[in-house]
Design a protein around this nucleic acid. Structure first.
Lengths: 230, 230
DNA sequence: CGGCATCCGGGAAGATACTG
DNA sequence: CAGTATCTTCCCGGATGCCG
């Protein structure tokens, strides 16, 4: 009881490998556990603190989040960094390998959205909906567009720069935006994916639209979910 | 004990949802459990029987395989079909949604191969290596090619039709092949991804090469693993 | 043999409470 | 705020046995 306190159990995340050279099997080793990919999703737009991650993942326990972060660090998907004083807080940041998982996350999302069981009206995190824009953009409809749009979801702000079929998204206020949406990710999703009229949402105060209203109407029409399969 | 025999426990695969509209979360609901995606991989080239699936997934227990197949059926990823008599065996076949997961599997494989932890020299299933050809083909090097190649791994045979940057793969003997490899998936991988000289493998009897030897040399050079990240 | 049910041991997930 | 400790519950994986 009083001995061996220092040598905490040396168990790595898992040692039950699939023992399979297939890349898919390796991927399941890396991100196949519950919550894993959703954590990576939350880190996709830059470093985050423990509490911020937890807030974006409703239902996860601190317990599991700690384990996953440890596992990711061990497998080279993220690094923990300590910000310099005075803000000496610890943040978690993806490595290049971690950021490279964006294509995986997008493909998974595009695929799952084809399932009849998928319900786009559930709540979702700010990072989720911003990432969905990069996934679901219809390149045809966005042709020739070059604008900066701001988003505010409570404390979190994003800046999206649409340039043709490419959307560059960064965290933080968009000072140079010609249009800004303020609300919850859910109401924005209702407008973009649920076909809810912008005016109604704005009237009800669920979604505040500042700036170019015509652009807002065009923006929400830029995205479309894939057709259901089966 | 004697009552209620028919009403088996109504528990679906899981009811602990992420409660997240993000497509990635939905995808994790569908294929986020252990072994799930590897089972889909094994089904990628057509219907399979229970025992065939088990053989391609070293380490899986019949128990878990049954559970996954039930779950997949409930979520519309596969269907169980009974072949007409006299071969009244049951087979599992992907639905369109299931087949659509190929892009997901390929992206996951491509991503995980960039991890320094990935070891391409582990054993792998016939379906794995055939799928890896579709993932890792270098379109440049395959330009202008139009050939049919056969593969035999024990009982399993495949026919691959390379046409430009596209590889169409079907199960079964390739009667019209101009080249055929016979061996284990592992030795073929050693030649294609491990850089092992074809001649040495052929001499040792690990990989039998019949037909156009020059094409064989070109074939194994068509594929390349992505560079490691981090 | 193929497929499914049942039981069991170990371990991971989830909730809660606690600590620096 | 950022985790850790603990406890309960559930899932994974192996073994066995039943039935076509």
């Amino acid at each position: 009881m009083q001995l061996q306190k220092g040598t905490k159990s040396p168990k790595l995340p898992r040692e039950r490998w699939y023992d399979d050279a297939c890349g898919t099997a390796m991927a399941m080793e890396l991100v196949g556990e519950r919550w894993s990919l959703l954590i990576v999703r939350e880190l996709m737009f830059g470093p985050r603190r423990f509490g911020e991650l937890k807030a974006g993942l409703p239902g996860i326990s601190a317990n599991v989040l700690t384990q996953r972060l440890e596992g990711f660090e061990a497998s080279g998907i993220l690094m923990r960094r300590k910000l310099p004083p005075p803000a000496s807080v610890q943040v978690y940041e993806l490595t290049p390998l971690g950021y490279a998982a964006e294509t995986v996350i997008k493909e998974l999302g595009r695929w799952a959205a084809q399932s009849p069981l998928h319900d786009p009206m559930l709540p979702l995190s700010p990072a989720s909906i911003m990432l969905s824009f990069r996934t679901m953009l219809d390149a045809e409809r966005a042709r020739g567009l070059d604008v900066v749009i701001g988003f505010r979801f409570g404390e979190e702000a994003f800046r999206a720069h649409l340039a043709g079929s490419d959307i560059r998204i960064t965290r933080g206020e968009a000072e140079d935006a010609v249009l800004r949406f303020t609300g919850t990710p859910r109401t924005l999703a209702a407008a973009v994916y649920g076909g809810q009229p912008l005016d109604a949402l704005h009237e009800a105060g669920d979604l505040v639209i500042e700036g170019d209203r015509a652009l807002a109407a065009r923006f929400v029409a830029l995205f479309s979910l894939p057709a259901k399969l089966l």
